[in-house]
Amino acid sequence: MSALVFAALYMIGDPVLMLASPEAGDAERELIRQSFGLDLPLWRQYLIFLNKVFVHLDFGKSFLTGEPAIGLILDRMPATLELATAAMLFAVLIGVPLGIYAGLKPESFGARSVMTGSVLGFSLPNFWVGLMLIMVFAVFLHWMPAGGRGPVQAFGPIQLSIFSWAGWRSLILPVATIAVAKCALIVRVTRAATRECLPQDYIKFARARGLSEARVLGVHLLKNILIPIVTVAGLEYGQVFAFAVVTESVFSWPGMGKLLIDSIITLDRPVVVAYLILTVVFLSLLNLVVDVIYTILDPRVQSKARA
């Protein structure tokens, strides 16, 4: 994959032509090329790159800024994490109750509306939802800003914008954009899981014991439907992370995705390659985390593991 990206970005354009001022002569361009090692044959560039990555954990420096690519990406990561986490939280907090409701009374009008709504939610393209939100809330109503990130405050080593009202005002539209689609998915998963759990003996037994409906649903049902929800939410979290490319472009959110698009446009190869490698690492870690949570939640998996 890294080789593919490497070769690909090499072929489409010459970063030097973008970077050098148009007044620069051929001699200057040649100098720039040499200083970046762009004058070497492609395979040597690639070998040098591999050596740096695996031996020195060095992903190279951004052509545009001269800063290490990995640092640029990590700088932008909190913004994307903030967006993805807030969106996923909203999706789960809204999606699970709606899903349980739709699972409990599948034939009711409300449940049908929820399910139809969920079809809308996951079929509408992400950028479309963002666009419409901007149009309504930013252009016509002037309630929220059309894009950008609010003021940030340091929270430990990272900068977050969730500590001020201005920060939330900027955050709410992009979060809603992502949450709509993910919420739709969570609703469907929850509904399916609920319908599968309801006829089970332990629910019937709990009801027979005369436990309140709230307790039956809140404890017995929720405990059992949590597994598929956590699995899907975890995996979707990774997708949100990747799909933030779109949302971040629509809202000019200064996260990793926006950086990726900008870097593709300016042919800033080290940044693109580093981004893809980081994403893969992140997704693998996420899978691992989901697996671990899975074991904690499901006693059967645990006992199997022990045995």
Binding site: V245, L260, V272, T279, V280
Partner: peptide
Amino acid sequence: LSFPAILVALVLLSVLG
């Protein structure tokens, strides 16, 4: 499938034009 579709498509198209 482990790569998000949008990323694969983006990188491919930035190559293909």
